[in-house]
Design a protein around this nucleic acid. Sequence first.
DNA 1: ATCTATTCCTGGCTGC
DNA 2: TGCAGCCAGGAATAGA
Length: 250
Amino acid sequence: MPELPEVETVVRTLAPHVVGATLLEARFLTARVSSADPRALAGLTVRALRRAGKFICFHFDTGVLSVHLRMTGKLLWGAVRGPYTRALLEFDRGTLAFDDVRQFGRIDWSDAGPRGVGPDPLELTPAQFTALLKGRRGALKPLLLNQRVVSGLGNIYVDEALYRARLHPLSPPSNLARLHRAIVDVLTEAIDAGGSSISDYVDAEGRSGGFQQRHQVYGRAGEACLRCGRAIERIVVAQRGTHFCPRCQR
DNA sequence: ATCTATTCCTGGCTGC
DNA sequence: TGCAGCCAGGAATAGA
């Protein structure tokens, strides 16, 4: 499931192909994938490709096309149409396929990009991050999953960051500078590794990431904590499978 | 403001 | 081998 590091990797691998390219035709193959008007997109040139939270944003002179991969979405440069292809963006330089098995992903058109995207954790200072969460009610994990509070974190990296910061997912905000450090560290390392390929994530070139081999708690329920040896527990928080060490994270 | 439950969706897994 | 049933979860939505 693509989160900030995976989306960042897609943007980095896709940008050399599409920035400066002109969109000849957009084809939306299912009704639910997009409500954008393909006729308004034809002939536009990509001025910039940027990440906003988990959105991949194609900036044109007249607006922004925002792609959200959700669970199983992929943007594949140079791919041919397959059974799960939901949209095709045909550029003068080649074709970009949007594949999505589960059809949760969306492609939206707007004047100024996606709304409701909070600040990027990689662009916040420790003081800004602390100020953002200080005084907020509720448990840490739901707060960090809330894209309006901080954008880009998902189930995997929240669990990994909380483990590194030794904070229980249900605890109220505390030790926020340490948590910010853990978030920045885990996201940076994951980007360096090309993201996590848990189910079938691949970048725009079809390459898998490598960070899934370095997960310390996510998907490790019942296995030994790498720090203390205690069995990693799995509980449900905010309807998500949540992994943590009951000894290291209080 | 904050919480929970529901919905969307389907490949892959489990258990019989 | 076959098949029913369940699971994964990001985000929108509704209701408490």
